[in-house]
Nucleic acid binder design. Structure first.
Length: 156
DNA sequence: GTTCTGACA
DNA sequence: TGTCAGTA
């Protein structure tokens, strides 16, 4: 059966400089208060992007989000701020592994057998097969390896 | 309406 | 850390 993928879009890097938010949004996203975010920044635990003046609104990037989300999680688990920061730093050393795997794996959406699928990229070194993930009626993830067809319609 | 800094509890 | 004040 020939592969008939219809790639609707390609995911841009999560760390894109376009992926930014202000303190209120970051607070909502992570559950941390704006007071905490400012306090942590004053302690050098987190950092926002460079501001023109002190009165300018803070802008955070994806890295700040991941850091805050991690600290907040450990805080909720009962760690002190100091402990949560320590834990976060320990994991932070290895985040590049998760980051690279995700960046190289999830390449976008595709349509397989008339059903939505996540394009997980090439399955083999020779780049002849591609891995796709789909979910069934019970939301269980199913993986499918399909021969890569260079002639398939693709939107870059 | 949102964010900023500083101050008080 | 929450909250309120007075700004920008």
């Amino acid at each position: 059966m020939a592969f008939s993928g219809e790639h609707s879009f390609r995911m841009k890097a999560l760390e894109s400089e376009l992926f930014q938010f202000r303190i209120g949004e970051l607070a909502t996203m992570t559950g941390a208060s704006t007071r905490q975010l400012r306090y942590w920044e004053s302690k050098g635990i987190i950092s926002s992007l460079i501001r023109e003046g002190e009165q300018e609104a803070r802008v955070y990037n994806y890295k700040a989000y991941v850091t805050v989300a991690s600290i907040k999680q450990f805080l909720d688990e009962g760690y002190t701020l100091q402990g949560a920061v320590k834990k976060t730093k320990e994991y932070q050393k290895n985040w590049h592994v998760l980051h690279e795997v995700i960046r190289h794996s999830v390449q976008g959406m595709a349509v397989l057998n008339n059903a939505p699928a996540v394009d997980l990229g090439f399955f083999d070194e020779d780049k002849t097969q591609r891995l796709y993930a789909q979910i069934d009626e019970n939301n269980k993830v199913k993986y499918t390896v399909q021969p890569w067809d260079d002639d398939s319609t693709r939107i870059e």
